[in-house]
Design a protein around this nucleic acid. Structure first.
Lengths: 200, 200
DNA sequence: GCCCCTGTTAAACACTCGTTTAGAACGGTT
DNA sequence: AACCGTTCTAAACGAGTGTTTAACAGGGGC
């Protein structure tokens, strides 16, 4: 919610306002249910401006999604580049976790993209997953067990946020409170180290 | 895809045809992007029949979602009721895994529901999560570590299917092939036992 | 002065949406 | 026979969809 109003007031470039409004709206409603008029209203413009700057609803969506994918990948790449072999799994896991905490909007966006256009994601995923996979192989080899564990860790990390609406009843407290997030972060780090040891 | 055509041919009750067409369409497109006319076409009827039998698009959606939630919960409850304390975590994990393998459509449906109407899910989750949580507490006590691990396991299991479009590039093979699914199932069981031991 | 280009607006376009309505067909009851 | 409720169809309704269009400002170059 903040990300559509506050940045809109700071930078008053129409293109940027549309982009951040679209990010919020697409994340909230998905591509099909989002309306260009609503996006324009959030960006304090008219719908025609969206076509003027981006060429159409689909092109705007593609821009927003590519941007989000790039941001997530940059975060993970930075975690890999940060240090040596030591503690890399924990760095990767925590980078993913922190990304999801700070950019919950982008997670919704990318999740929806996976649900809506799984096929399109499959085609483009080579460019995104390829480099990350290669870097992982440099560090861990290409053992099946390591790959399997990596999938489990990514699922465990993002699952906490995906199932957040249901976790309140399960955990007995707000899953997104600072204390809860800190506890979850510790758990993720410990779990990663435990699993790392188990493959050695 | 099959679930909309084959069952429609078997049972030719209009109400049932609409239900299974709606399940497929809502899972594929989400509530907002799905169209009652498309659903009617899949069910070989007219859109007016949807209002005649269900009262409207929203009511049809609610029916479909409640049915899906009930099916998932029944599966998990059966896994809990199946035996004693011994091996319960593994039974629960594998029940969840098998549910997702057999009913991928329902997973998409419930995932979308969580994304689209997180608030509504939060309200209704007590009825769904409550009994399951109570049963878990009977078996594991209400230690924080056990709850945290349960969340991780649910995430790891469902994450495999959520990220399926991307996993092909990461794993180097079709994530949904029978051999791959069998390997993943073994991994889930081993992982669950490993984590169970770690909390004792 | 005039002209061109960029940014912006409001109106209109054709279309789809969910829902409502009037009426027809049908089987069963009286 | 006439009547009834149920099931279904086809058409229409108003609202909202993405996109296009024509007109309009305003600044810089000639």
């Amino acid at each position: 919610m903040d990300s559509s109003t506050i940045p809109a007031a700071i930078s008053d470039g129409v293109r940027e306002r549309i982009l951040s409004a679209a990010r919020a709206e697409f994340a909230q409603c998905g591509f099909g249910a989002a309306s260009v008029r609503t996006i324009a209203q959030r960006a304090e413009t008219t719908a025609a401006m969206i076509n003027y700057y981006f060429g159409g609803k689909q092109a705007l969506y593609d821009t927003v999604v590519a941007d989000a994918q790039g941001r997530l990948f940059a975060r993970l790449a930075a975690a890999i580049a940060a240090g040596g072999r030591e503690g890399l799994p924990v760095r990767l896991a925590l980078a993913h976790f922190d990304f999801l905490v700070e950019e919950r909007e982008l997670q919704r966006l990318l999740l929806r993209q996976m649900l809506d256009q799984g096929g399109a994601v499959r085609e483009r995923s080579e460019a995104l997953v390829g480099p990350l996979t290669r870097l992982m192989h440099e560090h861990f080899g290409d053992r099946d067990a390591a790959r399997e564990l990596a999938v489990s860790m990514f699922g465990a990390i993002s699952g906490y946020f995906i199932y957040e609406p249901v976790l309140g009843a399960f955990l007995g407290q707000d899953p997104l409170s600072p204390e809860r997030l800190a506890a979850r972060r510790r758990h993720i780090a410990e779990l990663t180290m435990l699993l790392e040891r188990s493959t050695q």
